[in-house]
Amino acid sequence: MFPFDYLRPQSAAEAVAAHDGGERRYLAGGQSLLAALKLRLAQPSALIDVARLPELTGTRVEDGRLVVGAAVPHAGMAALPHIPALALLSGSIGDLQVRNMGTLGGALANADPASDHAAGVLGLGAEIRTDRRTIAADDFFLGMFETALEPGELIVAVGYPLPRRAGYAKVRNPASGYPVAGVFVAETDSGIRVAVTGAAACPFRLTEFEMALEGDFSPAALEGLGVPPDALNRDLHASAEYRAALIPVLARRALGLGGGS
């Protein structure tokens, strides 16, 4: 790692004030960031540790939403009873040690194309609350490791609408633990949502699948539907065609409303 300064402010406001909008970076659990720094893929001038900020910790239910603090670790979310599919998703991330350190806000800000949390946030139509505004999940993910966050903008919490039903299924790369592809389906008060992660530059919704499920929320409703491979990722783990074949299978599995694997 290149040298950097370390700051641990006492409040979210102090943390935002400490960020210069440039070479400084927020540090939450560090499970992706520290690995990237070791590879010298980034050279921040300072890390601003936000993991213990009181505004970013804790969970609560308010106005029909499960509000999860950005610094809540995946392991903490895996124990939440409110949205079983989200708990199963959280408990399937990385490994035990990563789940104990890695946080929801960190995962979203990092925006790895194979992020599990991205599927949950987009699939449930959550809102990302920052120090300055609220961003809808549909507007948050812009590309590979690219989000709508402005320089220095800090995720404070995520508000998940409580769905009527939801499920998540993925095929996990056995070495990295990241999804080769993952599909989150949800029936919410504002409609059906189907979100895919791991298969393209950033998570995306399958509106054709959503429409098919409006009248019949079952695997049979997806009969004959597919995804063109053109825009999907191809890498050493899977071809675009393989990912295209996986997505309908995973959507059907997610409709079984289990956690999948």
Partner: peptide, 18 residues
């Protein structure tokens, strides 16, 4: 792996400062 506040973490992915 060590425990930080009672939970298993990888000490090669945690700063001493944390």
């Amino acid at each position: 792996t060590v425990h930080l506040d009672g939970r298993a973490v990888k000490s090669c992915l945690v700063l001493a400062a944390q």
